[in-house]
């Protein structure tokens, strides 16, 4: 029998995934590792990780990574890329790191067109710190800082970061995907691959927001999370390519 699918070699065989059981943040990191393997860029890849659940990737990937200060990941990531333009810098952030504390850095990195690829994992919560409200938390969603459900009067509406980035002229490619079923996982993998190729081949900025959900803090069984994403979350955050000015097909 022939092996037709296995763990990519770019995930450390001795490494452990630090994500919670059933958390599809792990799926995102797996897809990034598969793209790195397929594009054969292991030694060129640098993965700056935001503060939050993203750091769980550190001991699992078998390529370079760097920890960052909260919200400053795009800044330190682009600083690295500026001095290693031959490298491929894939910036992994959550909704706190990129949309709250790092909003300025996220926008200005995109606006200057720094040739990095930002992967924003939107799970609508601050997972690592125990489930506080995020700028992407849904209206009515409970969290430890919105115990009765998030209200517009207190916190405004969820921020649609992909659309916000797409309003800027400079970014070459902006998309949103999800990883809650096989079809979407395969589509999102192509989005990631295209975004990374745009960095490599066109020396341009690319952005992919990926919708997940925090199984631990939602308090619902893992098996119900995919339909929660399909029926609730994706009504707020739409998947698809929002902006594509690249020459890649």
């Amino acid at each position: 029998m022939e092996c037709i699918y296995k763990k990519p070699a770019t995930l450390d065989p001795k490494g452990k995934s630090g994500f919670c059981p059933g958390c599809t943040y792990g799926t995102v990191v797996k897809l990034i590792a598969e793209v790195v393997e397929e594009l054969d860029i292991r030694e060129r890849t640098m993965l700056p990780m935001g503060v939050g659940c993203a750091v769980s990737a550190r001991d699992w990937v078998d390529f370079d990574s760097m920890m960052s200060l909260h919200g400053r990941t795009t800044a330190s990531g682009l600083g690295y890329k500026r001095v290693h333009p031959e490298g491929v810098t894939i910036i992994l952030q959550g909704d706190g790191d990129a949309v709250a504390i790092g909003m300025a850095e996220s926008v200005h990195t995109a606006n200057r067109g720094e040739p990095v690829t930002v992967i924003l994992v939107n799970n609508q919560i601050y997972g690592r710190t125990g489930g506080q409200m995020a700028p992407t938390t849904l209206i009515g969603q409970k969290s430890t800082t919105s115990v009765a459900g998030k209200r517009v009067e207190d916190a405004g509406y969820p921020i649609h970061m992909a659309e916000l980035i797409a309003t800027l002229k400079t970014p070459r490619f902006v998309a949103r995907g999800s990883v809650h079923n096989v079809k979407e996982i395969l589509k999102t993998k192509e989005l990631i691959k295209k975004a990374v190729r745009i960095q490599m081949e066109e020396n341009a900025y690319s952005f992919v927001e990926i919708v997940t959900a925090c199984t631990t803090n939602l308090g619902i069984p893992t098996s119900e999370v995919p339909s929660y994403i399909e029926d609730v979350v994706l009504k707020e955050f739409k998947t698809g390519v929002i902006k594509d000015e690249s020459n890649l097909n």
Partner: peptide
Amino acid sequence: IACKFCAIVCPDAAISVYR
């Protein structure tokens, strides 16, 4: 049937598929 669906959805890359 080696559809690979299990391996694709696995967040831990814990499944290998053989055919």
